[in-house]
Amino acid sequence: MIVYLLCFVLFLTGLYGVITRRNLVKIVISLSIMEFSLFLFLALIGYVEGGTVPIVDPADTGAVYVDPLPQAMVLTAIVIGLATTAMLMAVIIRVYRKYKTMDIREIKNLRG
């Protein structure tokens, strides 16, 4: 249970960063931290006590395997996270070129 709690603490750390940081890049880093805490969580829920890598070995019939589905989910989510992060970094560079700052307090044309 303690592992799940640590996972949740990591999630909250990321959330705290997203809410309090002023620098655009630090916000993206915090989002990534949240993302990775989730990947950890997904990998944990597929764990089976004493399980091995889920590659079926025909010789060993009594083997216990961990659940491969969450691992597939994590892989897919990593790819998606990569795309999101790349998109965000590209936008940040563009923002920096237009505003000459990365401070989120000075980037506020849109309001109301």
Binding site: L31, M34, L38, T84, M87, L88, V91, I92, L110
Partner: peptide, 16 residues
């Protein structure tokens, strides 16, 4: 750019 940054951060949170 500002709008899309806001949209992406909130959209990313929603996805998570």
């Amino acid at each position: 750019l500002e709008a899309t940054f806001k949209y992406q951060v909130l959209g990313g949170l929603a996805s998570l």
